[in-house]
Design a protein around this nucleic acid. Sequence first.
RNA 1: GGCCCCAUCGUCUAGUGGUUAGGACAAGUGAUUUUCAAUCACUAAAUACGGGUUCGACUCCCGUUGGGGCCGCCA
Length: 514
Amino acid sequence: MEKTELKLKKAGEVRTRFAPSPTGFLHIGGARTALFNYLWAKKQKGVFILRIENTDKKRSKGKFESDIKESFKWLGIEWDEFYKQSERLKIYENYLKKLLKEDKAYFCFCTEEELEAHRQYQLSIGKPPIYSGKCATLSKTTIKKYLKEEKNFVIRFRSPTKKIVFNDLVRGKIEFDTSLIGDFVIAKDFYWPLYNFAATIDDFDTKISHVIRGEEHISNTPKQLLLQDALGFPHPKYAHLPLILAPDRSKLSKRHGAVSVRDFRKAGYLSEALINYMAFLGWNPGTEREIYSMPSLIKDFSLERVQKGGAIFSIKKLDWINGFYIRQKPIEKLTELCIPYLIKSGLIERIKKKSGNPSPEELKLFEEKPQFKIKETRELLKMQKLMEIIALYQTRIKKLSDIVKDCDFFFKERLSYKKGLLRWEKMKDEEAYDSLDKIEKIFSKIEIWKRENLQENLTKELERVGDKGTFLWPLRVALTGKEGSAGPLEIAEVLGKEKTLKRIREAKKLALGK
RNA sequence: GGCCCCAUCGUCUAGUGGUUAGGACAAGUGAUUUUCAAUCACUAAAUACGGGUUCGACUCCCGUUGGGGCCGCCA
């Protein structure tokens, strides 16, 4: 322990990086990789770097870079330093020239067709497709000639043949034979470096101490190790994370539905829940504790406890964790989080503050900001009322978006449901009508519209009948139009006397109708 | 096909030679309840297979099988 600390101090701080290429929205797998990098760095008071790998100009898009940044901000993963490969082209060029000069890299003028044919041939005879080395021994004059003719070229790394062994922090010893790698391409041009090359240089240049990345990069590691040796760079430590798998055990991808952070955000998952869940895909603290906030993750995270095998992404468990965090939220906060969903679904709208000089009444109205309007009925809706509604469903929703389908009846003028729904168990329509009629009579007389009061007044009837469902079920359906909901008296209280009675009357009509 | 990696309940996992193989999600049952949730209690559910090593293997070794990743002038 002491020894490790000493070493770290001597070698400088822990510096990790997440290096996505902006060719798509931030994937949940990428987010988890970033999270592990972040946790590992922060645990040791180190530095976490975000590096945008956009050397592929065709596939890289600005909107994806924005998405990556936005997603991180939402998740609470903050980067300390930021780099963009497109802004570092000069650096790569210098190293490229250095390798060329030292004959550790060479120009290759083979055409893609040529290469493809060779690849196919090798595959057909069951050999790994590696470069033939055709241009490895081109004479200087030939190269000069080709260059002058402006022949298309790429730059290949002269890959030495040797056994490579590295110690993976998650998997232990991993061995490779570089004769199976061949002379790989490191740049398409002086100002167009390719992944392995650019990444190696950036990792060195930004003093990355730990490369923590997905398992799919294991086979890139020997190439980067070779490059580091050729350039005289020290080797960073490596940790390859297990992949996140779809239920069919294949790599999780777009065809499996929601996979990007923004998808989950839109669906109403809380960032705390997503962080907590992602951390536990391939890692655990070794205790039975499962609820972890970002600070506690930073405290307890360790690479040694990272799993080796891939983990299937289970939406059910995410839902559970999300529900848990929703239940923990203060109601004001939860309401604020739900509001965008209610607005987007068209149930409510925000009242725009009038520009110019608002009248004193208008100002007063806005004292309790934010204010809303129910779209269908044009009624004003105060934040307080909205909170009362959301509170009834806090234990019932798994994701924020659920609030819409569960609470829509609060914001509707008329409900639409089947008459049969009003009947409790073996009840007949007439009996449902009678129950509703009785409730209407009782409720009409009630002055103080509080749930305790409603309860008290209804209790006598309930006791008389014995089976509470006789009254409560039809009432609940009359108010909500749904098979499942919060309790009818709580709903009635929030709905208000007028609306409650109106809905009971409508239900009565329906019960009588054919 | 070649190379590399992996393997405990359906899922996420604990376990580091001797455990009634533990927890969580999901499932089921019950309690509560008008309903749906929430909550509580309980139940069912796993060491892929075959060889070693050992007094003793889930644990160590080898093989088999299965799964995955990579084999780009993408990252």
